[in-house]
Design a protein around this nucleic acid. Structure first.
Lengths: 336, 336
DNA sequence: ACCCCTTATTCTCATATTCAGCATAACTCA
DNA sequence: TGAGTTATGCTGAATATGAGAATAAGGGGT
């Protein structure tokens, strides 16, 4: 038997305290919903942004009382406005920062953030709404044409920041975090670590939000550090991108972004746009076909520049057949 | 280029509505924190429960104002009570059910649930606190000795419930959900689908909570349907178990439950206790050693009944070496 | 001392999956 | 007609995985 018995009355103290505190009511705070609404047009992942007091922000609204659950609330809320079906809605994370304030604009104390996928990417509407490429906010995440040049200055600043650590252990920790997140020194680029990378840039003061929130002067990076967003919306976006990049590997969510019929290359380009890396064409199609994710429509694509391609559609049945029918893209793959 | 342009002014309408609503403030609601605190003693996964008005419940408390983030709040809150370090804390999900009421006990409108892992499993404390095997609440999840006998009556009732569907399509959907979740008809048991299974049982009225919440008489199952919990705590527990079972595959979180030094078989038994299935011994140790998750301590185990075993410890460095250093137990493995 | 039982540890082997290209087909455009 | 472009089929090497044989090293009983 494993020897995990120790400590004594700790569990008891825990339970007592918890019971006592649990019986008091928490003081009310304002609760908000934020939505990262994603579409994929022209092989460019887009996020719907609005302008609030000049700053770019994610669509956000208050939690309404009339809905039974949060997700149903969000779904209704968005669908009412768009008459567009949200194919996929997923709760991302609940951010509860006590002092969520940005440029004088007080934000709700608690924000439940959602990720939603839509098929449409209509051109930008009124002045304050726009579909933006998500790489506008995290340009270092697009490795489709190889390692982005703008990573060079970023990494240089990060390394310098690591050396400013108080203790030696802290410096080593920073260096290891940087290496892991940015694929330096042996480690390879992992496209899912979007949040980790953003947080490093934030801590190192390399994104505008850091300067704004902490008052400390940011290292000027001449636009290579991406566009700023209101409050912590860029952190929420980073969370969403990371989550989506992971999710497409074990759930068939990409198809929520595809038109009813598509070619395998279109599917591949969309996956590449989301994950930010190039994939091996022949292996990709083998994967997709082997797993029975798509079926023939019978027709061929209008013309793709070369030999016409079969048009396929998503096989909805796979949702009920296997528990994890994603595009199991092996991590660490880096090919053309 | 993909033809995803369509619809026209939908995005515009969406953005307008969102902006307008976002400028109003949501009415305050009470916010709660609930914790699923897990320990693993004697190869039995334990969850810390308390008694509230006679019902078994998860430790829960109000959100306090003095902490910067939710997780820090929870950490402090628990650590203050236990003087025990929470090795691993993860936000699980935010439950926002408008009418979260149970047996007259009004619950917070919004609950942020956390999963925490502790190394200790002290004996049950005062009358209202106890470490309970989590299989007490979801007995059908323990497949370590083969398919649990109590699944037979459960499946029978589920099949019957499927036939009561309104439409034919609905019936087929139910049958497919049941088959997928419980590994019937071709599909194999997937230990991660804990929540899916609980929700089916709930919908079919086979767990006591369904009767209580919906007023509809539950099918009596003579205790095979597991122990009841307050409010939606059993759903939260199911979410936690499923998440943890998935997480151990790509993050080294099991080690948070292990003593400082352990044998490979102890590690295997713990993983089996969590995932609820038996693993192949030789392959398990190959996996663990190949991935460099552990290192020698030099000493040997006191005696395990047979040949003495090496004692190993977790290699903390792997956290910084690879992004996904879990026990990549292949799904669908079912061995002794 | 010897036999039996139990667990630990090392290896093998067959199979499946993945990676990386090669080769060929089918179209457009100049 | 030939060059360029994309589609599609196929192969061979490298890895990873599943299952189990074989051997090692303790304890306990006779």
């Amino acid at each position: 038997m494993i020897s995990v018995m120790q400590g004594g009355r700790a569990a008891e103290r825990l339970a007592e305290g918890v019971v006592a505190e649990g019986r008091r009511r928490g003081q009310p705070r304002s609760i908000g919903l934020s939505a990262v609404i994603i579409a994929a047009a022209s092989y460019d992942p887009r996020v719907l942004t609005i302008r609030v007091d000049g700053a770019e922000a994610l669509p956000s609204g208050p939690l309404e009382a009339e809905h039974r659950t949060l997700e149903i609330g969000l779904r209704n809320w968005v669908e009412r406005q768009t008459s567009e079906h949200l194919g996929y809605v997923e709760q991302l994370y609940t951010f509860g920062d006590r002092d969520r304030v940005s440029a004088g604009m007080a934000a709700p104390a608690l924000v439940v953030a959602y990720l939603a996928l839509v098929r449409e990417a209509a051109p930008a509407g009124p002045v304050d709404a726009a579909w933006q490429s998500w790489y506008r906010y995290v340009p270092w995440e697009d490795w489709r044409d190889g390692r982005p040049a703008l990573l060079a200055p970023i990494e240089e600043r990060l390394e310098r920041w690591a050396t400013t650590a108080q203790t030696d252990a802290q410096r080593r920790l920073r260096e290891e975090r940087i290496g892991l997140a940015f694929g330096l020194g042996g480690a390879s680029w992992n496209e899912e670590l979007v949040l980790e990378r953003y947080e490093l840039l934030y801590e190192a003061g390399l994104v505008a939000e850091a300067e704004r929130d902490l008052g400390q002067p940011a290292e000027r990076l001449d636009g290579t550090a991406g566009a700023e967003m209101a409050v912590d919306h860029r952190r929420i976006l980073a969370t969403a991108i990371g989550r989506l990049r992971g999710k497409i590997k074990y759930r068939p969510v990409v198809f929520e972004l595809m038109p009813p019929a598509f070619t395998l290359l279109q599917l591949q380009r969309t996956v590449e746009a989301l994950s930010g890396v190039k994939l091996h064409k022949q292996n990709f199609r083998r994967l997709v076909e082997q797993q029975g994710l798509v079926e023939e429509t019978g027709s061929m694509s209008a013309a793709t520049g070369g030999r016409p391609a079969r048009l396929v559609r998503f096989r909805r049945e796979v949702l009920l057949e296997r528990p994890a029918p994603g595009l199991r893209l092996r991590a660490g793959r880096r090919v053309s």
